[in-house]
């Protein structure tokens, strides 16, 4: 199997706090890999470092995408190589229609594909195509449009930062189905979440705690561990204890 993403020995400091440390993962092409972690574990920071956002240049380590060292590449260069990110809290755009917004990332600007993408996230194209991607959208609507936009791009690798947050239970099933559709249409998914019930659709799971991957395994195994240990963890910021327990 081809490694589409490989991260080695990654460190990111903000102020004097290490937000990501000793971070190593490999993602296989065509898989869904989930990174599970509690609030503040560093999941979004990881997404930003991978996408190359300003202020998120790693202090150490390397990121390889399709075997290419992208550590020093710009956001645009990374996107042009075939990766993208769906933000946990997406930005608003005054005056940009849903249709324009989705088409921006598409190679062929087919309106049929725009509609299909909206339907995938349970939004009626008739009602939404000409809406503006501004503050008039609810948080949940904006999230779904973000997912539709990255879906329509057909990226080789998509990083989904909490695609389930702000989405109601009914639509959650649709979102899970969409994530599987990403995989089925040839995209590799790096799924970031703090909800273990979403992890089940993944092929591999990583547990992130205080900026580190402390455990890797099957989604069921990691979810169970997360439910038992992390949800009521009282040693935030000190994963050493968990690691030691794991070793035992």
């Amino acid at each position: 199997m081809e490694e589409i993403l490989k991260v080695t020995d990654l460190y990111l400091k903000k102020g004097n706090k290490e937000i990501i440390k000793n971070f190593n993962i490999t993602v296989e092409r065509g898989s869904i890999s989930v990174v599970l972690g509690v609030n503040g574990a560093g999941k979004s920071s990881l997404a930003y470092v991978l996408m190359g956002l300003s202020g998120y240049k790693p202090d150490n380590g390397k990121i390889f995408f399709k075997g290419i060292d992208i550590t020093d590449k710009t956001v645009t260069e990374r996107a042009k190589l075939g990766m993208t990110l769906a933000w946990q809290t997406p930005a608003s755009f005054e005056g940009l229609t849903v249709r324009d917004y989705i088409q921006i990332g598409m190679k062929n600007k087919s309106i049929a594909l725009v509609k299909e993408a909206l339907e995938k996230v349970a939004l009626d194209p008739i009602l939404y195509l000409n809406r503006t991607v501004d503050k008039s959208l609810s948080g949940g609507e904006r999230k779904r449009i973000e997912l539709a936009a990255v879906y329509a791009m057909h990226p080789e690798l998509v990083i989904l930062d909490e695609p389930d947050s702000g989405i109601d239970i009914l639509s959650l099933e649709k979102i899970k189905k969409l994530i599987v559709d990403f995989k089925e249409t040839g995209s590799t998914v790096l799924l970031i979440t703090h909800r273990d019930e979403v992890a089940e659709i993944a092929d591999t799971a990583f547990l992130m705690c205080s900026g580190e991957i402390i455990k890797q395994g099957s989604p069921a195994e990691i979810s169970n561990f997360f439910k038992d240990e992390c949800n009521h963890c009282d040693h935030k910021g000190a994963p050493e204890k968990i690691i030691q327990e794991n070793v035992k």
Binding site: M51, L53, S54, T74, V75, T76, R78, A79, K80, T84, L85, W87, P90, A91, S92, F93, L96, D100, I104, G105, A149, M153
Partner: peptide
């Protein structure tokens, strides 16, 4: 964030600024 969102869709910085 708006600019970087559009860059993550493949636009250059200039194109992203123009769109915003």
């Amino acid at each position: 964030k708006e600019i970087e969102t559009l860059e993550a869709r493949g636009l250059t910085e200039e194109e992203a600024i123009k769109a915003v």
